[in-house]
Each structure stands twice: as C-alpha cells, then as structure tokens.
Amino acid sequence: MSDGVDRHSESRVVQLRHQGEAAAATLPALMAEATRIAATVAQGVHGRRRAGVGESFWQYRHHRPEDGRAAVDWRQSARSDQLFVRQNEWEAANTVWLWRDGSPSMRFSSSKDHASKIDRAAVCQIAMAALLTQGGERVAVLGESAIARTGALGLERTSRRLALGPGDMTAVEAPNIGRFGRVVLASDFLDPPETWAARLSRFSTMEAEGVLMRIVDPAEEDFPYSGRTRFENPGGGEGLLFGRAEEARSTYRQRWAEHGEALAALARQFGWSVVTHRTDLPATSAVLALYRALARDA
C-alpha cells in the first residue's frame, strides 16, 4: 500500500512539475511582448492626488465610526453639527492592484493567429505594471501579493504572478486591499452583470475604483459560425449543438451587445471605466486605453 501511495505521489509531483515548466515556458514571450508594448505606450506616470499621510491638505470628509475619536478634526467639526476628518494628499506612491482572470473561458482562442484571452490579458496587465513602476507607483496582484512593491523587484514579482498565477475569482469576491486603492480587472466578464455588481460593491465599500478590461475574442462578438456546429462548455458542463448556426447569429449578436451595455452601465454606477479589447487588434491600443482610463479616474 505504501509503495502504491509513494508511486502515486511521485507521479503527481512529476506531472505538476511538467505542467509548471510548460506554463513557465510562456513567460519570456509574454514578458518580451509586454516590455515592447510598455516602451511604446510610455509617457510617464505622474503622481495622483489620493488621501494618505502626506503633509499637504487635500479635503475634509465626514467622520465614520471606524475612524475613531482621534481622527476627528475638532476645529472644522466645531463649525457645524457634524464630525469631520482632515485628509492630506498622499505623497507616497499610489498602489494599483492588478488581476487577470484565470477562468476556463479565458483560455479560448478562435484562431491560431489570435492570442488566447488569458495570454492577452496577462500581456496587457504586465505592460501596465511596467508603466506604473516606471512612474514610481506600487503594484500588486489581487489575491496573490501580500505586499505592494515598486521598482524592478515589484515588476518582476507582479509579472510572474500575472503570467502564471491562478487568477482565482475569490480575489474579486473577497478583495483584501486598503482604502482608496486603484484596481484593474482583466476578464471576459461573461458572468451575469448582477454577479459582477455584487463583486464591485465589495470594492465600493473600500472606496476603491478602477478599470474593467474586457477581453473579447473576435468570434465571440462576430459569431461567424454556420452549418452544424457544436459549442463546448469551457467549464466542462453540457454544450450546445446547432443544426444551422447562422440562424442564431442575429439573436446572439443582440444578446452580446446587450451584455456589453449592461456591463458598461454597471461600471458607471460604481464610478469605474470599461476598456473593451479584441484579441485580433494590437495590444498596444488596449494598454494605452487602460493607462488613460486609470489616469482619468484618479
């Protein structure tokens, strides 16, 4: 019995090692592409005014129970019947939390000429990490980084986690970040909008804002299929079989557009932005749009 268990354990270790080596083999290519994109987009990242521990006054806000008595600015509070807290400009580097969805649907690619959604998301997020660390800001991977870092060390650790990490959904369902964090979530966002509403509401309680980077394979938007076509469920569930797929094209495209509109409305509701990117287009355009959206929301 023990020999069987040992052989099974050894076989499992070998299997995991091979899987890890195969995954790691993609890292240099992803890093090279991301570095090239970051160099193309780089315009310099300027400090953003955020609440923090700096000495320059920024604003007053209403006192919250969790702030405690010591945080009250009594001079300002004496001028009204409400309690206020004095907030100062954050002179330290801002922290941006990045996340790349690792769901099975993200591994889809309709053509060998297009990157998979998961690889394109990783490339864009790594390029963003490069731009942010060049500007002196701290970056971390949501759900996978305990400490946000800047500089070469921050970029190296963040890049590896974005390329090889699991991208677990629990990271967005129970985010562990501080107040006023900036967040970039890269996913295909195929879950129902109400599911994402519940997730974004958790960020809202932390006064975090950011950008939703919606990664789309061209076939998902165009639905170019015709004739007898079977669609497999990437999660392993029951698929769909169409006798004449082209007959469903109009309805599908309408539903797809409605889903995108619902996601955009949801983002606006929480003060976020949406950047939609098709994998048949250059990644540079997506990173530039991400950078601009993050700067605009700051």
Rank of each mutant, 00 (worst) to 15 (best):
R100S: 14
L98Y: 03
V53W: 13
A71M: 12
G52Q: 11
A70P: 02
P65N: 10
Q76G: 06
G54Y: 10
V85H: 12
R64I: 03
S56I: 07
W97M: 09
E89K: 14
R75M: 09
A70Y: 02
Q76N: 01
Q87S: 09
G54M: 13
A70L: 13
W74Y: 00
G54W: 13
R64S: 04
E89A: 12
E66S: 11
S80N: 02
F84R: 01
V96H: 08
V53D: 15
R61A: 01
N94S: 13
V53C: 11
Q87V: 03
V85K: 14
Q59F: 01
P65L: 09
Q82D: 09
Q82S: 12
D81N: 14
E91W: 08
V85M: 13
Q59C: 03
W90H: 10
Y60I: 02
N88P: 02
F84T: 03
Q59T: 11
F84V: 00
D67A: 12
G68S: 08
D73P: 05
E66T: 05
D101P: 05
L83I: 10
H62D: 12
R79N: 00
W99C: 06
H63C: 06
A78K: 03
G68F: 02
G52N: 10
H63G: 04
P65V: 11
D73K: 00
Y60M: 01
H63N: 04
F84P: 02
R75K: 08
D101I: 09
V53F: 12
L98Q: 00
G68R: 06
R75S: 08
L98A: 01
D101H: 04
A93G: 14
G54Q: 11
D73F: 05
Q76W: 11
D73G: 03
V85T: 13
A92K: 12
W90P: 06
R100T: 10
E91H: 14
W58Y: 11
R64E: 07
R69H: 04
R69S: 08
G52E: 14
A71I: 06
Q76Y: 08
